[in-house]
Simulated scan of single mutants.
Amino acid sequence: MIRPATPSDVPTIMRFVRELADYERAADKVVATEALLTDALFGPQPAAYAAIAERDGEPAGMALWFFNFSTWTGWRGLYLEDLYVTPEARGTGLGKALLRYLAGVALDSGCARFEWSVLDWNAPAIAFYDSVGAESMDEWTVRRVSGPALLALADRD
């Protein structure tokens, strides 16, 4: 079963975020708190949305996403920030069910595309995404400005 997340799911979402970061070899990068996630997901102007996947009545995975916009298409898009399935639930179809759920959200929300990023070393995830028809956008690279560079760019250091 996949359902929209509720405020009572925030501790579970935070646990899944930490487990995913640990898997991605970046546990030290997680600075989010339950309070920040609660505001981002359920505050007056949500910045993101989440769904919980359950197996045998227990949370076993999640998807967290937000909407973006393409000037090329003139339509909004859905960007999957995090997809996580617990190790014991992997291989059961839960990940594919979450992607299917989000594809439906994208279509119901008038999105022209559904996108996400994957670490280049994560071969199991890449193979999984290939199996559902996702195409690699190899000609694009992600650029990021954060921390001191963000402050400097905004001339606020």
Rank of each mutant, 00 (worst) to 15 (best):
Q45G: 12
R76Q: 12
G104N: 07
P148A: 14
E24K: 04
E19K: 13
E139M: 10
G91Q: 08
W75A: 14
Y49R: 12
W75R: 14
W65S: 08
D155T: 12
G133R: 02
A123P: 03
K96C: 05
D138S: 10
S8P: 02
Q45R: 15
Y84I: 02
I126H: 01
E135D: 10
P4C: 04
V85A: 07
L41V: 05
E19W: 11
D56C: 03
A149R: 09
V85E: 05
L80A: 05
E58M: 12
F114K: 07
A154Y: 06
L98M: 03
R100Y: 13
G77P: 00
Y79G: 03
P46N: 01
L41E: 05
I2V: 08
R156N: 13
L98R: 00
G95T: 09
V118W: 08
S8F: 10
W75Q: 15
V31E: 08
W72E: 10
V85R: 01
W72L: 11
V17G: 01
A26T: 13
E24Q: 12
G74W: 10
W121C: 09
S117A: 12
V85S: 08
L80G: 00
A60G: 12
A154G: 11
G110L: 09
L20S: 02
V30Y: 11
L98C: 02
Y84S: 03
E135P: 02
D108N: 10
Y84R: 00
L83N: 05
F42Q: 04
D39V: 04
G110H: 07
P44F: 07
